[in-house]
Each structure stands twice: as C-alpha cells, then as structure tokens.
Design a protein around this nucleic acid. Structure first.
Lengths: 350, 350
DNA sequence: TTGAAAGCGGTACCAA
DNA sequence: TTGGTACCGCTTTCAA
C-alpha cells in the first residue's frame, strides 16, 4: 500500500490540534472555525492526505458501497444491465463494485461472502442457475442485508427482484413461432428447477397448448451453463443428429443461441428458412452468426436502473426487514432481426 | 448492515476465552490447542460469525483486493479483458472488484480515488482517452501503489502496460486496405494526443507513406467518446455529406465502427462494395450491422490475464518502486469477417 | 497455550 | 470552538 502514510494524526501533530479537530474540519463540520478549517484543509492537500475508507467504514458501519454480482460480463446483456445500475447509483451517490463469477456457483458463493464481509450496504445479484447459494443469501437477508435479484429471479425465497416477465416472454415468442407455422420447436436452456429458463418453458408450454400442440419432452434440450462451449456444441450436435424432427429453436440465452446457430450452420442447415432461431436478451453475440433471428429484447439498462432504485428503498428502511418483497417486471419486446437486410422489426410488447 | 452482530468478542465471551485466542483459533494459528480451536470454530459456525474485512484489512494493511477500472463493460472487448483478469486472479487467490466509468474521465477520477482509498493492493486500468487522471495515477504509483495499464497504454509516465502493438496494428490494417485498392481511407477515432488511437494513426500514416500516398488531414475524423451517440452520428453524417471523397473507414474502436456503419447504411452506402469498413477489437457490436468488415482481433482474454500477472509481480516487490517498467505487447491478428457467408478469414498476425 | 494491552485510522460524545 | 477519550472489529506483540 501507499508508503505515503499521511493520516489524520500526522496532520494534527503538524499544526498542534487534536485528531478530532482534523477529522471534523476535513468533513466541514459546523463546529470548527473557518480559520482552522482552512489551515487543516490546505495542509491535508499539501501532504496528499487520503482518507482510509477501511477505517472510516469500520466506525461508521456504513460503506456507501453496493456490490453487484453477475455471472458474466462479456455478454452485452449483463454489460447493459450494469450500465443501468451504475447510472442509477451515480445519482444516489453510491459506489458500485462489480464481481464476476463466470457462471460458476462456487465462485459466486465466494463473491457473496467476500462482498458481505466487506460490509457493503446492499447487494444486487444476477444469480447462477440452480439456487446453489440461496441459503447464504437468505441468511444475509434475514440479518438485514438488502438484496435484490436482477434478471434471474428466485422463487424459493421471499425476495425482491427485477426481471422480465419470463412466462409471458416465453409465451409470446413461442406463439410467434407457431403462427409462423413452426410446430416442432426445440427449447434449449438450463432448465433446472426454479430458474428463469423454467419460467420461459412455462410460457412455451402455454402457447403450445393454446395451439393444440402437445408438449414433447424430447424437444426440451436441457443444457448447463457451467460446462464448456465445446461440450455444449457436442450436445447440440448430437441432438441434431438424433432422429428427432425439429423446425426451430428457442434458446434461453444469447450464448446458447450463438452456439446452437453455429452448430446448425456447420451442419448445413439454413437459418431462418430451414430452421428458425429465437433467443432471449437481444445479445450482440448472436449477430456474429450473420443470420436472421427472433429475439426478446429485455431492456437491460432499464432492468439495472430499476433494480438499483428498489435496492435504495430497501437500504433506506433497514429496520423493516420483513416488509413485503416486490417482484417488478420490466417491459420487454419481441423483435425480428434481419441483420443483412438491416431490418429490425418490432413485433409485440411483452 | 447485518443485525447479526457476532464478532470475535461475542464468541470470546461465550466460552470465556480472550478475543486474541478466538482470532488466532479462527485463523488456525499454531499456538492454540486443537481442543479450543475446535470449540471456537464450532461456535463460530453456529453463531454465523463473519469476519469484518474492513477491520481485518485496517490492521493488516493488506486487502488482497485488486481494483479494475474500465470505461465500458457492455462491449465484448472489455468484457473479455475482464474475464482474462478474473481468470488469472483466481489462480492467485486475489479478489477482483470492477468499477465502470462510461468513458467519463470525471467518474474515472472518482473511481481511482475511491479504489485507492479503499486500500486495494493494486490497480488495473483501461484508461479514458485524454490522460485526464495521469497526475493522480502517477502520484499513487510514486507512493507505492502498483498500477498496470491495460489495453490503452499511457506514454507520458513511466508505467507498466499490457496492450496491443497499436502502431503495427494500424499499419497492418491500413496496408490491407491499400492492397485492396482503397486510397481514400478515413481514419475515425478519439485521436487525442498520446492515446491508443494516436498510435494507430501512426501506423496508418506509415502504411500510406509506403504506398506513396500523402497523408490527408481531412481524412482524419476526430471524435470524442464522451459525447453521446446521436451527436457522434451527426458528426459522421456531416462528414459523409461534405465534399470530401472517401472509399473506406478504419475505426479506432467497435462502438465507433458500429455508428459509422449505421450512418453509412442509413445514407445508402453499400458495405463493403461501396465502402470498406475496418475496426479494432473484433467487437460483437459491429456484427449488428450485418455487413462484412475487417478487424484487428486483439485477444482480450490474453491481454487481461497478462496484465494481472504483471501486476502480481509488481505487488510482490513493493519496495522496488523504481524498477524498470515493462511495456508488454500481446499478439493480435487481422481478420476478415463476412457474417452472412459465415466466413471468418485469418489474414495476418500482428 | 492463553490473554492483556496497544493500536490500525477514523469518528463521536461530552467536557472544557 | 476545541480536544480527550472511548471505541469500531480485528491482529499482534509480549508476558503470564
């Protein structure tokens, strides 16, 4: 750390006042004369004094920091969510620190532990599918740590969340596929119990039902984010080569959609004429495929900003631990992209 | 913060030992008997004891945290850089916290101040163009804070950096354009003195010279990241409508390339047949355009990991503040993308 | 093997 | 308007 060890005491000694006086002067306390304030501030600047936040937060029991935990950040969806969070946080004068866990729930647990031990004032989390760390989060929450789930909600516990209405989104995109004469729609995702993907599947099933199509288990391709890309591709490939017929894919996320698209193209399928491709998130990575696709644009910036605002209200009434939790849905929309034609057509609000 | 106020003292009292003993036991110190260690640990777990890192770090004067400051995170380039950083950090058991400033140097300054006041052990920074905060960084560095510049280097001060060889990259991509019969190449970027873009322009000029083409100032379109997208587009539009002739664009970054492409398409130009488009970073956002383009793929993951490794070596010999700084270049490559054809052709190593 | 005491850098209360 | 003192939660001598 800094060799430059200028502390409040250093300053105090130099001008023969007490540390208490320096502390107050530096924070513009009313009960210090302008004269000494000036003297102290000048000296502080001259010596390059920096407050030690660790010390400050230790006594004040407030850090003014909120911690954000996300699974990935190389994806435009999360990146934009974070932008929304930062945007809102700046208005409220909070510092935001971001931790990334690469979809690994063990790293996520460490992230949660670290950040709470660091005494952040609140946590925003886009959690790794599978609810591996719910116990920890629940414990923290019960002990008064404000926590808001972002994007990927969590049903098991009574918690605040800001997400897309995933059931409706799944329903809407599936209905669009059905209307466009697709009937053998594969749904790909980390369809673990109680995750976002699960909700999307619910919507998918609902739409099928409405169109009188029976849900076919074999068209539900379960994958897991934590396995690596090559393995994922292999899994997709083997599905494609199985005898199961299909005419379209709806993917629970951008990265999956990209991989599915990649495999389809490698295997000689045409998109969208041979197979229609759909995804959630309007993620930039899907555009790498260079093919038309249907997407649920979730307004990530708005999700992020809304989540922060909700967190702030929670942080403000710390006492009220048992207040009713809010589940907020941010509006999204169904869009059809045809990059090569530079067409981006709005289809429907969700 | 947590209502659950279990501290070392709480535990100490409950089993009638001193706080010192608890502290040692919890950290597996050799001079505590296994018996009491066990007792203490069990009780700690039962009570849900969490160490307060603010307190811990305050006395140890080490945080084991490294701070990463980036301008943007919704862009795949930075996202992947961060992934590389995290990957390397995990191996060394460091915690990584990320701060984002949206290309705003005032926010960047706050980020730097905050993070250093928080007593991080080292800083990785991808700095906002313009060298606005060099004074601060230099001061910190002189006071013993290890700092490594990532991606966007900084020539003014004697500092460690891990970047692309930008002169060479600028040279290579320009040469490719020239070989493909482009001669009126517009270079767009935040060509402020002493930034990455500037190096890229140097390479650009060098290539022009080699091909016997005189550098034309008017083909250098200076833009500034900090102005908003609509203004940027307006600036690009007005250039396009000026009488200046052009046959291609090389853009210093992905976001700019995307905006340039957008305007060109809106104005009815064909890419790449009418106008060839080039950029640095192989950023996913460019694919949104759905057109072929040339890119310098900078291997962001490798840049991130390398930067972290360099930082670690700096953190290990804190004394040696005046050691020679290292400028490391990470290999990149020139690639031609034709998304609609699913072609991604390697052209040349850089 | 254990613990008392001092202190990390600040803040806050109360007395002067 | 100033300053003494206690303390935030934890670690670290050094003595018992």
């Amino acid at each position: 750390m800094t060799l430059n060890k200028v502390t409040i005491k250093t300053i105090a000694k130099k001008i023969n006042v007490s540390p208490a006086t320096v502390s107050k002067a530096l924070r513009d306390s009313h009960d210090i004369s302008d004269q000494t304030k000036l003297k102290i501030k000048n000296l502080a600047k001259k010596l390059g004094y920096k407050p030690n936040l660790m010390a400050r937060n230790l006594v004040s029991k407030k850090s003014n920091i909120i911690g954000v935990i996300v699974p990935d950040i190389s994806t435009s969806f999360f990146g934009l969510t974070v932008r929304g969070i930062n945007y809102a946080a700046r208005k409220h004068n909070y510092e935001v620190i971001i931790l990334v866990n690469d979809e690994d729930h063990k790293v996520e647990r460490k992230n949660i532990e670290f950040i709470s031990n660091l005494q952040v004032d609140g946590i925003l989390i886009d959690s790794v599918p599978g609810n591996h760390n719910l116990d920890l989060l629940e414990e923290l929450s019960e002990n008064g740590m404000p926590i808001v789930f972002v994007d990927r909600k969590c049903k098991k516990i009574n918690a605040d969340s800001v997400t897309t209405d995933d059931i409706k989104a799944g329903y809407t995109i599936t209905k669009y596929f059905l209307k466009n004469n697709k009937s053998k729609i594969v749904f790909v995702g980390d369809v673990d119990l109680l995750t976002v993907a699960n909700d999307r599947v619910k919507g998918y099933k609902k739409a099928l039902k409405e169109f009188g199509i029976k849900f076919d288990k074999e068209l539900l391709l379960k994958i897991n984010y934590e396995i690596d890309e090559e393995q994922l591709k292999e899994k997709i490939r083997s599905f494609i080569h199985s005898k199961k017929e299909f005419d379209s894919f709806i993917c629970a996320g951008g990265v999956i959609a990209y991989l599915v698209g990649l495999v389809l193209l490698e295997e000689g399928f045409a998109i969208p004429d041979g197979v229609l491709l759909g995804e959630f998130g309007d993620n930039n990575i899907v555009y790498r495929l260079g093919v038309p696709f249907i997407t649920v644009d979730q307004s990530p910036i708005s999700i992020g900003a809304t989540a922060f605002d909700l967190l702030v209200t929670r942080m403000k009434d710390v006492r009220n631990t048992n207040a009713k939790r809010k589940q907020i849905y941010v509006k999204s929309k169904l869009v059809s992209h045809h990059p090569a034609k530079h067409e981006h057509l709005f289809i429907e609000h969700i």
